[in-house]
Simulated assay, not measured.
Amino acid sequence: MSDAALDEMTDDSSVRKDAAAARKALPPGTCDDPALVENLFKARFLEYATLNIVGDPWNFDNTISAQDKAIDSCKDTRCLGRALGAVIGALSPVYLQSHPHWPSGEGLCTGDAVDTSVKGAMSQLGIATGKAIARECGGDETITARTCDGPHGKMLFVSCAMEGNQVNAPQWLYRAGETGLHAMLIVENGPVGVMESTCNGMPDLMTAARESMGEQQMAFYRYDGKQYRSVYAFSSMGIGADDNGNELEIAVDGMPGAKVVCR
Protein backbone atom coordinates (compact mmCIF):
# COMPACT_ATOMS: atom_id res chain seq x y z
CA MET A 1 0.00 0.00 0.00
CA SER A 2 1.32 3.41 -0.93
CA ASP A 3 1.89 6.16 1.62
CA ALA A 4 -0.84 8.25 -0.03
CA ALA A 5 -3.40 5.44 0.23
CA LEU A 6 -2.46 4.80 3.85
CA ASP A 7 -2.79 8.50 4.66
CA GLU A 8 -6.36 8.42 3.33
CA MET A 9 -7.22 5.47 5.62
CA THR A 10 -5.69 6.68 8.90
CA ASP A 11 -4.06 9.63 10.55
CA ASP A 12 -2.44 7.41 13.19
CA SER A 13 1.30 8.01 12.97
CA SER A 14 2.06 4.72 14.74
CA VAL A 15 0.10 2.78 12.09
CA ARG A 16 1.99 4.54 9.31
CA LYS A 17 5.26 3.84 11.10
CA ASP A 18 4.44 0.14 11.46
CA ALA A 19 3.40 -0.05 7.79
CA ALA A 20 6.67 1.57 6.72
CA ALA A 21 8.66 -0.89 8.82
CA ALA A 22 6.72 -3.82 7.34
CA ARG A 23 7.41 -2.64 3.78
CA LYS A 24 11.07 -2.13 4.58
CA ALA A 25 11.35 -5.74 5.77
CA LEU A 26 10.13 -7.05 2.39
CA PRO A 27 12.52 -7.79 -0.48
CA PRO A 28 13.12 -4.85 -2.85
CA GLY A 29 10.48 -4.59 -5.56
CA THR A 30 7.75 -6.45 -3.65
CA CYS A 31 5.30 -3.55 -3.60
CA ASP A 32 5.83 -2.97 -7.34
CA ASP A 33 4.59 -6.48 -8.21
CA PRO A 34 0.75 -6.67 -8.07
CA ALA A 35 0.77 -10.47 -7.92
CA LEU A 36 3.13 -10.49 -4.95
CA VAL A 37 1.07 -7.83 -3.16
CA GLU A 38 -2.08 -9.88 -3.66
CA ASN A 39 -0.45 -13.09 -2.46
CA LEU A 40 1.05 -11.33 0.54
CA PHE A 41 -2.41 -10.15 1.57
CA LYS A 42 -3.91 -13.58 0.89
CA ALA A 43 -1.24 -15.39 2.91
CA ARG A 44 -1.59 -13.06 5.88
CA PHE A 45 -5.38 -13.30 5.78
CA LEU A 46 -5.27 -17.09 5.67
CA GLU A 47 -2.87 -17.23 8.61
CA TYR A 48 -5.02 -15.17 10.93
CA ALA A 49 -8.39 -16.30 9.59
CA THR A 50 -7.40 -19.96 9.95
CA LEU A 51 -6.04 -19.35 13.46
CA ASN A 52 -9.52 -18.07 14.29
CA ILE A 53 -11.27 -21.31 13.32
CA VAL A 54 -8.94 -24.21 14.12
CA GLY A 55 -9.60 -26.26 17.24
CA ASP A 56 -6.00 -26.11 18.47
CA PRO A 57 -4.75 -22.52 18.06
CA TRP A 58 -2.00 -23.18 20.61
CA ASN A 59 -0.46 -25.58 18.07
CA PHE A 60 -1.39 -23.61 14.97
CA ASP A 61 0.42 -20.57 16.35
CA ASN A 62 3.65 -22.55 15.87
CA THR A 63 2.71 -23.16 12.23
CA ILE A 64 2.25 -19.43 11.67
CA SER A 65 5.60 -18.69 13.33
CA ALA A 66 7.37 -21.15 11.02
CA GLN A 67 5.63 -19.68 7.96
CA ASP A 68 6.53 -16.13 8.96
CA LYS A 69 10.12 -17.16 9.56
CA ALA A 70 10.31 -18.56 6.02
CA ILE A 71 8.79 -15.36 4.58
CA ASP A 72 11.09 -13.11 6.60
CA SER A 73 14.17 -15.04 5.47
CA CYS A 74 13.58 -14.15 1.80
CA LYS A 75 15.96 -11.60 0.32
CA ASP A 76 14.45 -11.44 -3.16
CA THR A 77 10.99 -11.51 -4.71
CA ARG A 78 11.47 -14.96 -6.24
CA CYS A 79 12.00 -16.50 -2.81
CA LEU A 80 9.10 -14.49 -1.40
CA GLY A 81 6.79 -15.75 -4.15
CA ARG A 82 7.64 -19.36 -3.29
CA ALA A 83 7.20 -18.79 0.44
CA LEU A 84 3.82 -17.10 -0.01
CA GLY A 85 2.68 -19.82 -2.39
CA ALA A 86 3.57 -22.46 0.20
CA VAL A 87 1.51 -20.68 2.86
CA ILE A 88 -1.50 -20.27 0.55
CA GLY A 89 -1.29 -23.87 -0.64
CA ALA A 90 -1.11 -25.23 2.90
CA LEU A 91 -3.81 -23.08 4.51
CA SER A 92 -6.42 -22.65 1.77
CA PRO A 93 -7.82 -26.21 2.13
CA VAL A 94 -7.91 -25.91 5.93
CA TYR A 95 -9.73 -22.57 5.85
CA LEU A 96 -12.15 -23.41 3.05
CA GLN A 97 -13.13 -26.80 4.48
CA SER A 98 -13.64 -25.63 8.05
CA HIS A 99 -17.12 -25.17 9.46
CA PRO A 100 -16.61 -23.71 12.94
CA HIS A 101 -19.36 -24.08 15.50
CA TRP A 102 -19.74 -23.66 19.23
CA PRO A 103 -18.30 -26.81 20.87
CA SER A 104 -20.76 -29.00 22.73
CA GLY A 105 -18.71 -32.05 23.62
CA GLU A 106 -19.83 -34.51 26.28
CA GLY A 107 -16.51 -34.90 28.05
CA LEU A 108 -17.70 -33.28 31.29
CA CYS A 109 -21.34 -34.39 31.47
CA THR A 110 -23.12 -37.50 30.24
CA GLY A 111 -26.39 -35.56 30.26
CA ASP A 112 -27.68 -32.03 30.65
CA ALA A 113 -26.65 -30.16 33.78
CA VAL A 114 -29.57 -29.49 36.12
CA ASP A 115 -30.23 -26.64 38.54
CA THR A 116 -29.27 -27.25 42.13
CA SER A 117 -29.56 -25.36 45.39
CA VAL A 118 -27.27 -22.33 45.46
CA LYS A 119 -27.27 -22.41 49.26
CA GLY A 120 -26.27 -26.06 49.25
CA ALA A 121 -23.53 -25.46 46.71
CA MET A 122 -22.12 -22.51 48.67
CA SER A 123 -22.09 -24.55 51.88
CA GLN A 124 -20.02 -27.23 50.14
CA LEU A 125 -17.54 -24.63 48.88
CA GLY A 126 -16.95 -23.16 52.31
CA ILE A 127 -17.61 -19.78 53.86
CA ALA A 128 -14.63 -17.92 52.38
CA THR A 129 -15.19 -19.17 48.81
CA GLY A 130 -18.93 -18.59 49.05
CA LYS A 131 -18.44 -15.00 50.19
CA ALA A 132 -15.90 -14.35 47.42
CA ILE A 133 -18.33 -15.62 44.76
CA ALA A 134 -21.18 -13.57 46.25
CA ARG A 135 -19.02 -10.44 46.13
CA GLU A 136 -18.12 -11.13 42.51
CA CYS A 137 -21.75 -11.69 41.54
CA GLY A 138 -23.16 -8.82 43.60
CA GLY A 139 -25.07 -10.94 46.11
CA ASP A 140 -26.31 -14.47 46.81
CA GLU A 141 -29.50 -13.88 44.82
CA THR A 142 -27.52 -13.39 41.59
CA ILE A 143 -25.73 -16.75 41.74
CA THR A 144 -26.78 -19.82 39.76
CA ALA A 145 -25.62 -23.40 40.34
CA ARG A 146 -25.96 -26.52 38.20
CA THR A 147 -24.66 -30.05 38.54
CA CYS A 148 -24.17 -33.04 36.27
CA ASP A 149 -22.73 -36.52 36.38
CA GLY A 150 -19.97 -37.27 33.92
CA PRO A 151 -17.24 -39.76 33.07
CA HIS A 152 -14.96 -38.04 35.59
CA GLY A 153 -17.43 -37.70 38.45
CA LYS A 154 -19.97 -35.11 39.54
CA MET A 155 -19.41 -31.58 38.28
CA LEU A 156 -20.65 -28.33 39.80
CA PHE A 157 -21.03 -25.22 37.64
CA VAL A 158 -21.42 -21.91 39.48
CA SER A 159 -22.07 -18.67 37.63
CA CYS A 160 -23.20 -15.12 38.15
CA ALA A 161 -26.69 -14.68 36.70
CA MET A 162 -26.90 -12.59 33.52
CA GLU A 163 -29.41 -9.80 33.21
CA GLY A 164 -30.78 -7.76 30.29
CA ASN A 165 -28.51 -7.91 27.26
CA GLN A 166 -25.55 -9.18 29.30
CA VAL A 167 -23.74 -12.03 27.51
CA ASN A 168 -20.68 -12.60 29.70
CA ALA A 169 -20.45 -13.62 33.34
CA PRO A 170 -17.84 -15.10 35.71
CA GLN A 171 -18.03 -18.88 36.01
CA TRP A 172 -16.52 -21.50 38.29
CA LEU A 173 -16.15 -25.23 37.63
CA TYR A 174 -15.69 -27.73 40.44
CA ARG A 175 -15.38 -31.51 40.57
CA ALA A 176 -16.58 -33.53 43.55
CA GLY A 177 -13.92 -35.68 45.17
CA GLU A 178 -13.33 -37.65 48.36
CA THR A 179 -12.17 -34.51 50.18
CA GLY A 180 -14.91 -32.22 48.85
CA LEU A 181 -15.19 -29.97 45.82
CA HIS A 182 -12.00 -29.30 43.86
CA ALA A 183 -11.67 -26.10 41.80
CA MET A 184 -11.05 -27.00 38.17
CA LEU A 185 -11.52 -23.69 36.33
CA ILE A 186 -12.33 -20.07 37.10
CA VAL A 187 -13.09 -17.71 34.23
CA GLU A 188 -13.98 -14.03 34.32
CA ASN A 189 -16.21 -14.24 31.26
CA GLY A 190 -18.20 -17.17 29.93
CA PRO A 191 -19.82 -19.11 28.49
CA VAL A 192 -17.67 -22.25 28.59
CA GLY A 193 -17.68 -24.66 25.66
CA VAL A 194 -16.56 -28.29 25.94
CA MET A 195 -14.32 -29.35 23.05
CA GLU A 196 -13.86 -32.83 21.60
CA SER A 197 -10.07 -32.81 22.06
CA THR A 198 -8.66 -33.94 25.41
CA CYS A 199 -5.57 -33.63 27.58
CA ASN A 200 -4.67 -35.79 30.57
CA GLY A 201 -8.05 -37.49 30.41
CA MET A 202 -10.19 -34.34 30.46
CA PRO A 203 -11.76 -32.43 27.56
CA ASP A 204 -10.28 -29.13 26.44
CA LEU A 205 -12.45 -26.09 27.17
CA MET A 206 -12.90 -22.70 25.57
CA THR A 207 -14.61 -19.43 26.39
CA ALA A 208 -15.87 -16.63 24.16
CA ALA A 209 -16.42 -13.25 25.80
CA ARG A 210 -18.03 -10.57 23.66
CA GLU A 211 -16.12 -7.30 23.91
CA SER A 212 -18.08 -5.40 21.25
CA MET A 213 -20.44 -6.10 18.36
CA GLY A 214 -17.53 -7.14 16.17
CA GLU A 215 -15.03 -8.57 18.61
CA GLN A 216 -14.82 -11.50 21.01
CA GLN A 217 -12.05 -12.57 23.36
CA MET A 218 -11.39 -16.28 22.86
CA ALA A 219 -9.53 -18.37 25.44
CA PHE A 220 -8.60 -22.07 25.46
CA TYR A 221 -7.89 -24.28 28.47
CA ARG A 222 -6.26 -27.68 28.95
CA TYR A 223 -6.21 -29.91 32.01
CA ASP A 224 -2.75 -30.32 33.57
CA GLY A 225 -3.69 -33.22 35.83
CA LYS A 226 -4.94 -31.02 38.68
CA GLN A 227 -6.81 -28.09 37.13
CA TYR A 228 -7.44 -26.29 33.87
CA ARG A 229 -4.88 -23.76 32.67
CA SER A 230 -5.13 -21.19 29.90
CA VAL A 231 -2.96 -22.29 26.96
CA TYR A 232 -3.92 -19.70 24.34
CA ALA A 233 -6.06 -16.60 23.84
CA PHE A 234 -6.78 -14.14 21.06
CA SER A 235 -9.29 -11.53 19.94
CA SER A 236 -11.66 -12.69 17.20
CA MET A 237 -12.36 -9.60 15.09
CA GLY A 238 -14.95 -9.21 12.36
CA ILE A 239 -13.64 -7.60 9.18
CA GLY A 240 -16.74 -7.62 6.99
CA ALA A 241 -18.22 -10.17 4.62
CA ASP A 242 -17.16 -11.90 1.41
CA ASP A 243 -19.00 -11.79 -1.94
CA ASN A 244 -21.34 -14.55 -0.76
CA GLY A 245 -22.35 -12.72 2.41
CA ASN A 246 -20.28 -14.91 4.72
CA GLU A 247 -18.93 -13.06 7.75
CA LEU A 248 -15.13 -12.85 7.79
CA GLU A 249 -13.20 -12.93 11.06
CA ILE A 250 -9.53 -13.01 11.94
CA ALA A 251 -7.57 -13.69 15.11
CA VAL A 252 -5.43 -10.85 16.41
CA ASP A 253 -3.20 -10.36 19.45
CA GLY A 254 -2.57 -14.07 19.94
CA MET A 255 -1.21 -14.81 23.40
CA PRO A 256 0.31 -18.24 24.19
CA GLY A 257 -0.27 -19.26 27.78
CA ALA A 258 0.82 -22.13 29.98
CA LYS A 259 2.69 -25.10 28.56
CA VAL A 260 0.56 -28.11 29.47
CA VAL A 261 2.02 -31.56 28.81
CA CYS A 262 -0.56 -34.20 27.87
CA ARG A 263 0.35 -37.68 29.09
Rank of each mutant, 00 (worst) to 15 (best):
A128D: 04
N59S: 11
A128T: 13
P57T: 04
A113F: 02
T110I: 08
P100N: 07
P93G: 11
G126K: 05
A134V: 09
E38W: 05
T50K: 00
M122K: 04
T116Q: 11
K69A: 08
I88R: 07
L91A: 05
D68Y: 04
R82K: 15
E106I: 11
S73I: 04
A132C: 00
A132W: 02
G120A: 07
R78C: 05
T129K: 12
L40D: 02
K119W: 01
P93E: 01
G81A: 07
A132D: 13
G85Q: 01
D115E: 13
C79Y: 08
Y95M: 01
G107W: 06
Y95W: 06
N52M: 10
G120Y: 08
G111Q: 10
L125W: 13
V114G: 13
E136G: 02
A49K: 13
C74I: 11
C79V: 11
A134Q: 12
D68L: 11
K75I: 02
N62W: 01
L40M: 03
S73D: 14
D112Q: 14
F45C: 04
E38T: 15
I88G: 10
L125Q: 04
D56K: 14
G107F: 06
S92L: 03
S117V: 07
T77G: 09
K42H: 07
E136P: 00
A113Y: 01
D68C: 09
L96H: 13
T50E: 00
F45W: 02
S98H: 09
I53A: 01
S104R: 08
D56W: 02
C74Q: 07
R135W: 03
S104Y: 02
L84S: 09
T129D: 07
N39D: 13
R135N: 09
V114L: 14
S123T: 13
G126W: 00
N62M: 03
G107H: 01
H101F: 11
L96N: 15
D56L: 12
S92K: 13
R44F: 10
G111S: 12
K131A: 09
A134T: 13
T63Q: 08
Q97M: 05
V118E: 01
S123W: 00
C79T: 12
G130Y: 06
S73C: 00
D72V: 12
T63R: 10
V87W: 10
T110Q: 08
A90Q: 11
N39K: 13
N62H: 04
G105M: 07
Q67S: 13
F60V: 12
K131I: 15
V114M: 11
W58P: 09
L91V: 08
I64Y: 00
V118Y: 09
V118D: 03
S65A: 14
I133F: 01
W58C: 02
V87G: 07
A113P: 06
Q97F: 05
G89Q: 05
A83T: 08
